[in-house]
Amino acid sequence: MPFAHLVGIYPRSEKVVELSRSVDRGRATPEALAAAVEEDERAVIALQREAGLDYITDGLLRWQDLLRPLSSGVPGMEPGGIVRWFDNNSFFRHPVITGPLRPTGKAVLAVTNLAALAGVRWKAVLPSPFALAALSENRSGRSFAQVLDDAAAVLRAEAQALEAAGCVYLQFSDPVLVTRATPDDIPRARAALAAVVTGLRARTALHTFFGDATPVLPALVEFPVDEIGIDLYATTLDGTRARAAGKTLLVGALDGRNSLVEETGALVEQAMRARDRLAPDDVALVPNCDLEFLPWDVAAAKTRRLGEAAAVLRRG
């Protein structure tokens, strides 16, 4: 059955933008900022519910980037310098691994608004263990294989803690596999993800973005998750022989990097086109990536449009 949901960090409201700047300049208190963020989280949750999305996030509004809750919350790693976030005009602090990573299961919960998510079917977003390891600078003296094992252990603890807190859907985000991974990386990325998700009850997804997924799609369908996500703004479906049988396909047809709000019919058409070309068991409509690259108002309009398109798909 087709459905829809968000896949990453939601943008900040103009009020939070202004307050966060003011806090950095010593002109507002962190408490005032926290209250405004809480207000935004509740607004984003309400928006998703009104739009009829199937899984709800708190917008990940306390996340400075996809890796920051881990780089600043897990012993053995710390936030490093500013690095360009793939082909965007935005940046992240690359994690610096200084020693063995110690799983705590607390890093992501510390930035999740559980109270606001009470009573809804909520999803969590985490980096895949491969993305976390590949995007980190390893100063620990340990091998990449050891770092990858550590990353998997860290994420398993986070996933278990999130599941215990009520999370019903765990998405692992990985832009690396479709942009800069080598053929040798695929099996170890798969093994690391298996080490994270084995035994979890929550539904699981691997979402790729910023790169063409079709070359690696035959390998991705072997990953031990229920759903696979692709970015249709970076993926050309024409001519591919790849198939997504056995998986639900997350069709990234809503552009998180452009402000033009898609027509409902165009989104539906793209979902059906992906279904026809890749033959998954099922499809879901999602943004191709985080919506944080958009201003707040545009992201809200796109979220509503996503819900409208999913409703059309549901009606068949």
């Binding site: 943008p11 900040r12 103009e14 933008v17 966060s20 700047r21 806090v23 950095d24 400075q64 980037d65 500013i82 005009n89 935005s90 940046f91 992240f92 602090r93 402000s259 033009l260 944080e292 690259f293 958009l294 201003p295 707040w296 108002d297 545009v298």
Partner: peptide
């Protein structure tokens, strides 16, 4: 200009459409 988008952390810029 719609509004601000984030560059990194608490740094933003106005991005036009």
């Amino acid at each position: 200009f719609y509004g601000h988008v984030r560059s990194f952390d608490n740094k933003y810029y106005r991005k036009a459409a």
